[in-house]
């Protein structure tokens, strides 16, 4: 037991060390890409708390990222708040927006909730461009942030925050709060009959999840050094949900796979298509990334409906077999 702990600590230390020196080995642009992946990691982690653990589907988390991003940009340019301080504030503002959205969302379930959240994602660019808000958001032009950070900076800041938020998610999932979330997902009637107040916990899940999205959106704004309505494009929300499904709904470790997918697959769709397609197709044609995304999603849903997290569990199943199958079969 003690040896196993020692090994575990050593493994974590080694992993931490290699992750820390990684950006210096791969160069600044790769570090930037990995930093962007960390941003998706944070956003998908939050979405998973809502969709994977509480059972409320959201196709609108890009909008909460936008709230975080705009908050950061406005605070940094108007109030001179240091960039790294705008990150938690962006998260809190988005969290508040999520709480406010979560209250009317209580009336909606399943597909209808998903559509309502998608409505938020669709409306967000127009809201940002609206005349009344133009003074704040600078309309279609958007806001330029004072400082463009290096890829290494983004990598370090993002993954440090991501690690903290991962531990936070882990603590939530394994607490009384997380049990209530999962109970609501499995049966709302049974959960309320066990003393769980469905409204309070569903709204709380929306708030926490939007906080994650806000932090991610804030980092996204800092990574670009600008925000405008098109930065948080409508299908960003869809990408996040796809990432959550690929990572595995209800799996925290799987989120890393979902984040890698969202960061690396769409931009490299053409070369992936060239590599795997037996047909002579124009891989540079518009729409190819969407086709690849769609195909990947269909494959995951058909072949590994529990996502990367589910695969991981299945591989480790022989070790923990009795959790999933009866010893001796049956």
């Amino acid at each position: 037991m003690r040896l196993a702990w020692g090994l575990r600590v050593a493994a974590v230390a080694a992993a931490g060390l290699s992750l820390a020196i990684l950006p210096f080995l791969v160069g600044d642009y790769r570090a930037f890409e990995l930093g962007r992946m960390g941003i998706f990691f944070i956003a998908i982690l939050g979405l998973n708390l809502l969709t994977g653990y509480t059972g409320q589907v959201s196709i609108g988390h890009g909008a909460f990222m936008a709230v975080g991003g705009y908050t950061s940009a406005i605070l940094a340019t108007r109030c001179g708040v240091p960039d790294y301080l705008t990150i938690p504030l962006g998260g809190l503002t988005a969290g508040l927006a999520g709480l406010l959205f979560g209250i009317p969302a209580l009336r909606l379930r399943g597909l209808y909730l998903a559509l309502a959240t998608f409505g938020v994602a669709v409306a967000m660019p127009s809201i940002a461009k609206h005349d009344r808000l133009e003074g704040l958001t600078k309309g279609t032009t958007g806001i330029n942030l004072p400082e463009l950070h290096s890829g290494t900076w983004l990598y370090g800041v993002t993954w440090a925050i991501a690690a903290a938020l991962f531990l936070l998610a882990f603590a939530i999932v394994n607490s009384r709060l997380g049990r209530a979330f999962r109970a609501l997902r499995d049966s709302e009637v049974a959960a309320s009959s066990m003393g769980v107040n469905p409204a309070a916990y569903k709204v709380a899940a929306f708030g926490i999840s939007s906080f994650y999205a806000g932090v991610a959106g804030s980092l996204y704004a800092l990574s670009n050094a600008y925000v405008n309505p098109d930065v948080y494009f409508v299908s960003l929300s869809l990408f996040l949900l796809i990432g959550a499904v690929i990572g595995g709904l209800g799996s925290l470790t799987g989120v890393i796979a979902g984040a890698a997918f969202v960061q690396f697959v769409p931009p490299n769709a053409s070369s992936i298509l060239d590599a795997v397609s037996p047909f002579a197709v124009d891989s540079r044609a518009p729409g190819v990334p969407s086709v690849i995304l769609g195909a990947a999603l269909v494959l995951v849903v058909l072949l590994a409906p529990t996502g990367a997290g589910g695969l991981l569990r299945r591989i480790s199943a022989p070790l923990m077999g009795r959790l999933y199958t009866r010893p001796g079969g049956g």
């Binding site: 603590a171 939530i172 607490s175 009384r176 709060l177 997380g178 049990r179 209530a180 109970a183 959960a191 066990m194 003393g195 769980v196 709380a204 926490i208």
Partner: peptide, 14 residues
């Protein structure tokens, strides 16, 4: 989960 209403662990303490 059945003990939910007999326990007190809130978000901060969790």
């Amino acid at each position: 989960v059945g003990m939910h209403s007999r326990l007190h662990g809130g978000i901060i303490r969790s």
